[in-house]
Simulated scan of single mutants.
Amino acid sequence: MASPMSAGGFLDALRAEGLTVVQVGEWRTHNRNHKGPWGPVNGVMVHHTVTRGTDTTVRICYDGYEALPGPLCHGVIAKDGSVHLVGYGRANHAGLGDDDVLRAVIAEKGLPPVNEANTDGNPHFYGFECENLGDGEDPWPEAQLEAIEKAAAAICRHHGWTARSVIGHKEWQPGKVDPRGFSMDDMRARITARLK
Results as ranks from 00 to 15, higher is better:
V41H: 09
V41Y: 03
M45F: 11
V46A: 09
T49Q: 02
V50S: 15
G53Y: 13
I60V: 15
I60E: 13
Y62E: 15
G64N: 07
A67P: 06
P69G: 06
H74G: 09
V76C: 11
G81Q: 04
L85E: 04
G89A: 11
G89P: 07
A91C: 10
L96P: 12
D98G: 00
D99P: 14
D99K: 14
D100Q: 15
V101T: 11
L102Q: 09
R103N: 14
A107L: 08
K109D: 11
V114T: 14
V114S: 02
N115L: 15
A117D: 13
T119D: 10
T119W: 06
D120P: 00
D120Q: 10
G121S: 08
N122G: 02
N122C: 10
P123E: 04
P123W: 07
H124V: 06
F125P: 07
Y126D: 02
Y126L: 06
G127M: 07
E129C: 12
E131I: 12
L133M: 14
G134K: 05
W140C: 11
P141C: 08
Q144D: 09
L145H: 09
E149Q: 07
E149H: 01
E149T: 08
A152H: 01
A153K: 03
H159R: 00
T162K: 00
T162I: 09
